[in-house]
Design a protein around this nucleic acid. Structure first.
Lengths: 138, 138
DNA sequence: AATATTTTGCAACAAAGTTGCATTTGTGTA
DNA sequence: TACACAAATGCAACTTTGTTGCAAAATATT
């Protein structure tokens, strides 16, 4: 088990349960973002579907995961950078979604450039999703 | 009926049907983006749910509408700029989603800035969604 | 007006997401 | 360690959302 798992859960004042440990481990192992369905597959029949929904929701609320918008009605989740060392951290990085293999990546080192919006729009968040062909699918 | 409706459909080689006229008119009337559910509400029991799904899909394929990604599992649709005069036109404008009233706007005059991605990622599309508080909800 | 093509509505289904509640598991404390 | 309290899980039932095939209806073509 990844050494940060327990810490991460305790820092967020969450009970340390099997499903949370397993789901968090999944995200730590794979660098890519995961949709609900991916997690359901990877965890087999180990946990109830409802538990997975609730766990994801909890993790988002606690700032452990963030959501990545998509145009295909399947929201992906990814670890918040430094979630396991510093807690919630808003950094507005770019996401990349591969049209071929479907993998979604957090490009942690590419930040969303500032955008000048018309007067009257107060921006709280900026999501930039690039899509195309990823390194592996060229 | 909006004068451009018939033209738009014919230019895309689509049969001019009641549901298509009505749905296109909805988009022409309201400036904001619409989700499937919005359309279902606004058209009452006039059309079958399936027809609405298929119409939206057709309009996207023909370049009449484009999709706007979201993090809440409800893709919005909006008229492609100049869809009714010039056909499909790729312009990568910014979208704004209001957290308060839920309205999604196309900011046609704000373009998505170029982003430098790591080598190996081939970008075909860029979607920038800003969220926060819109003019009406301040 | 007659025929060919396209679109629609229906029905049945599949997938995705939600809610309430009893049971189980985890946490803090004596 | 055992106890009591709090929190999380699993189950069942349900709602919502999206898909598919096919006959009937509407539209386009001649």
């Amino acid at each position: 088990m990844h050494p940060r798992i327990i810490d991460t859960l305790k820092r967020s004042q969450l009970s340390v349960t099997d499903s949370r440990k397993k789901i968090l481990e999944l995200f730590l192992q794979r660098k890519a973002a995961l949709a609900h369905a991916d997690i359901e597959q990877h965890s087999g029949d180990e946990f109830d579907r409802v538990t997975i929904y609730r766990t994801l929701q909890t993790f988002v609320e606690k700032g452990i995961l963030h959501t990545i918008p998509s145009a295909d009605n399947s929201v992906r989740y990814a670890l918040c950078k430094d979630a396991c060392t510093e807690g919630h951290h808003h950094d507005n990085h770019v996401h990349f979604m591969c049209d071929v293999c479907g993998t979604t990546y957090c490009l942690d080192h590419v930040t969303v450039p500032a955008v000048q919006l018309p007067a009257g729009y107060q921006v709280h968040q900026l999501d930039l999703v690039a899509s195309g062909t990823c390194i592996k699918c060229q």
